[in-house]
Design a protein around this nucleic acid. Structure first.
Length: 197
DNA sequence: TGGCAGATTTTA
DNA sequence: AAAATCTGCCAA
């Protein structure tokens, strides 16, 4: 069916540096099948979190029960609960033993808009998936998705050939340390990013 | 546009 | 105990 068009990203996709992968993820489709519904969106905003020189990274102070997935193999989900209300979805990168990941901050809705609107309690397309907590609510991503292999199963990353050029690199959102590193990426002018500043 | 409450987990 | 990779609502 058209909404599932595209090939799942394989291990080889995760070979480069984490910032490079964060850029390469722009345009890919994140898809979640829940209760037979296909919920998906195109990735339009990412942030890289690094193991070296990046105190804002959850893994900066070594492995803990929460950040353990970051130290696992690449291409898996790292989902955590934050601020008492929200989930954040990350994609693990770097070889096993190295704690790095890419936070997905915004999607452009692709399929399952009606179901996503119901989950988000809004029909405003811009408010559906523009923000790390919002996209998790829209796609039904929660703790049960943690560590999922994103190349197979009900939570998938797909390549349908979409390429963005003119990618912007700017400082990340909501962090207090390493706040100057330009590790946040999005296509210039994209209307679905969480903030345009 | 800006400030703040909300509500829970994790870590120090 | 304090901070946390946030969001929605409300007042100006």
């Amino acid at each position: 069916m058209a909404s599932m068009k595209g090939k799942p990203l394989q291990m080889g996709f995760y070979n480069g540096s984490t910032p490079d992968i964060a850029v390469s993820l722009l345009g890919k489709v994140l898809l979640h099948i829940v209760d037979g519904n296909i919920l998906s969106g195109r990735i339009v905003e990412t942030e890289a979190y690094l193991s070296q020189g990046d105190p804002a990274c959850h893994a900066a102070r070594g492995m803990t029960p929460r950040n353990r997935p970051m130290f696992g193999p690449p291409g898996r989900a790292y989902v955590y609960f934050i601020y008492g209300n929200h989930f954040c979805f990350n994609i693990t990168t770097a070889p096993e033993g190295v704690g790095e990941a890419v936070l997905i901050r915004a999607l452009e809705p692709v399929s399952g808009r009606e179901e996503m609107s119901a989950r988000r309690n809004t029909s405003d397309g811009r408010l559906l998936c523009s923000g790390p907590g919002r996209l998790c609510q829209a796609l039904g991503i929660d703790r049960s998705c943690n560590q999922a292999d994103l190349s197979s199963g009900s939570l998938l990353l797909l390549d349908d050939g979409c390429i963005y050029d003119d990618i912007v690199a700017v400082p990340r959102i909501g962090i207090k340390t390493a706040a100057d590193l330009p590790l946040r990426f999005y296509p210039a002018g994209n209307q679905f990013v969480s903030r345009r500043t």
